[in-house]
Computed example of a mutant assay.
Amino acid sequence: MRVDLFDFELPAERIALRPARPRDAARMLLVRGGGILEDRGVRDLPAILREGDVLVFNDTRVIPAQLEGRRGEARVGATLHKRIDLRRWQAFVRNARRLRTGDIVEFPAGVTAIAEDQLPDGSWTFRFEGDEPVELLLERAGRMPLPPYIAGKRETDEADRSDYQTMFAREKGAVAAPTAALHFTPELVEALDKAGVGHETLTLHVGAGTFLPVKAEETQDHRMHAEWGRIDPVTADRLNAARAGGGRIVSVGTTSLRLLESAVDDDGIIRPFEGDTSIFITPGYRFRAIDGLMTNFHLPRSTLFMLVSALMGLDTMQTAYSHAVVGEYRFYSYGDASLLLPGS
């Protein structure tokens, strides 16, 4: 499909620079099958979902993966996006033309890394020096990697250390938050439990590639960056049992959805999974693992807007996003939510 089919107009003032407070006070656009739209709030979830439904969250934890350093007199910016091993990471690099293989880059707080080699996509492999775990080095030297559409409008600050983590964040390794889950609070989860709506967690370490624009003119020419994920056998069994009992599997966020769809077989059975996925979902895709999706509002021409269009239909999502713009919904990572239920 042509990428320009997924374009739309978005006024800059619709981009949220801070999250709603409290988190579950955010608005939520409910989109049902057939293009039925309802203006709701995140706190309406217990009334909208049914007993036996299961929400699936991503428990990845965002690390301070954005670094500013120097190679000699040259400034070098690095955003880590994928772990290779205990000391090496792949990174997108600003001012990469100043780097050569073997260069030492000095970051704040005495953190140094060697630029080992440049990859075909233009990113670099960095090997961090020393004996301390890289995660500890990043806590000293790094900043939270806010999306460029936020970071370009304001400075990252201490509030982002907590604002850009979900209440489920446990497994360190993401460089972008699974933002749909930012809306959840312990009080909301308790209300969902009382309504008979269950929840499960899986892990997908979100990479910075999620923010890269689609430069190809046709969707089939775009290549996704791989991200590492895991679904353990117990979680897979519980999800399959819930679905067999008539419950719906509702993914909270596109990251959870992409991992579930990577792990499912042709018969709709979710299998345990551990490894990389680069699944790219566009209209025409047959969903097998999920029955619904809660997600924020995405960028024009992005792979994520293509994904929601695959789930609900492009015309429906264009209409829904136009409604959200006119209705002054807040967009992107710190913005409001949508709940997409194609079968209802």
Rank of each mutant, 00 (worst) to 15 (best):
R2I: 03
D4L: 04
D7S: 15
E9R: 05
L10E: 12
L10M: 13
P11C: 05
E13L: 00
I15G: 09
I15H: 06
L17P: 03
R18C: 00
R18A: 12
P19H: 06
A20F: 00
R21K: 14
P22S: 08
P22N: 10
R23K: 10
R23I: 02
A25L: 05
A26F: 00
A26M: 02
R27V: 14
L29G: 03
L29A: 12
V31G: 06
R32N: 05
G33S: 10
G34Y: 03
G35L: 04
E38C: 02
E38L: 06
R40H: 15
L45Y: 03
I48Q: 07
I48V: 15
I48S: 05
L49Y: 03
L49N: 06
G52D: 12
F57C: 08
T60F: 07
T60D: 03
P64E: 12
P64S: 14
Q66N: 04
Q66L: 14
E68I: 08
A78P: 13
I84V: 14
L99T: 13
R100V: 03
T101H: 09
G102H: 11
D103F: 13
V111H: 09
T112V: 09
I114K: 14
I114W: 00
E116A: 09
D117M: 07
Q118H: 03
D121W: 00
R127K: 05
G130V: 05
G130I: 04
L136Y: 01
L136F: 04
L137S: 07
R140A: 12
P147K: 08
P147F: 07
P147Y: 06
A151G: 13
R154E: 11
M167T: 04
R170E: 15
E171S: 13
G173W: 13
A174R: 09
V175T: 14
A176G: 04
A177I: 14
P178N: 09
A180T: 08
T185Q: 04
L188G: 02
D193M: 00
A195D: 05
A195V: 04
A195S: 14
H199Q: 13
H199V: 00
E200M: 13
A208Q: 08
G209Y: 08
G209F: 05
G209M: 06
L212P: 00
L212V: 04
Q220S: 12
D221K: 09
H225E: 15
H225D: 15
H225T: 11
G229P: 10
D237C: 00
A244L: 07
G246H: 11
G247D: 01
I249G: 00
G253L: 02
G253Y: 01
G253S: 05
L259F: 13
L260A: 03
L260Q: 02
E261Q: 07
D266C: 01
I269G: 02
F273N: 01
F273H: 05
T277L: 07
I281E: 07
G284I: 11
I290V: 15
D291G: 14
M294T: 11
F297N: 01
S302N: 11
V308E: 11
S309C: 13
M312Y: 10
M312V: 10
Q318D: 01
A320N: 06
H323P: 04
A324M: 10
F331P: 11
Y332T: 11
Y332P: 09
D336R: 13
